[in-house]
Amino acid sequence: MNIFRLAGDMTHLMSVLVLLLKIHTIKSCAGISLKTQELYALVFATRYLDIFTDFISVYNTIMKLIFLGSSFSIVWYMRRHKLVRRSYDKEQDTFRHFFLVLPCLLLALVMNEKFTFKEVMWAFSLYLEAVAILPQLVLLQRTKNIDNLTGQYVFLLGAYRAFYIFNWIYRYFTEPHYVHWITWISGLVQTLLYADFFYYYFNSWKNNVKLHLPA
């Protein structure tokens, strides 16, 4: 465990928990894509299949449980909570899961570290995580509006991406045989998509400021 990895895990954890706590507190999920949240729940469910079979550390197991619990809680709130689900932009959040899930599954069947159920699911979870933000991006482009909730969530996710890349670079130079092409390439794609998301975020933020200026 290095400082970049820890910082990456903590910002990732905070992104999910901040989102969950805010939805719980303000009883609103306006601007948040349920499609993206469902994809993230699927990402964690398929990646952590090893939770009871491979013990890595107490830290690892607890983090996995928190990610699983919080991501499924967010989906539950957005689908089932009677106040929260009213604030959901259903008409705007039309991205089909299928278009992301199917190519990722096919890619995982072809590109994996080992052709076993767990390894294919693990590769699938990495590919899916890389593109799971797309429905959120589409929703953001449509509504052209980004509030504090979405802003903080995106900022924390972006920080998580950046720290993980530093972690891989650090591990590559400090650990022998640390080469993980699948993780790195899908992680890089994911980070590039976040850079795109950040671009829209700052544009929207800038436009909102402009709108408040006197004509």
């Binding site: 990895r5 890595i56 690892n60 993780t183």
Partner: peptide, 10 residues
């Protein structure tokens, strides 16, 4: 061992 693939990252 070489056969088992262990993923220690989250």
């Amino acid at each position: 061992d070489q056969e088992r693939v262990v993923h220690d990252e989250l």
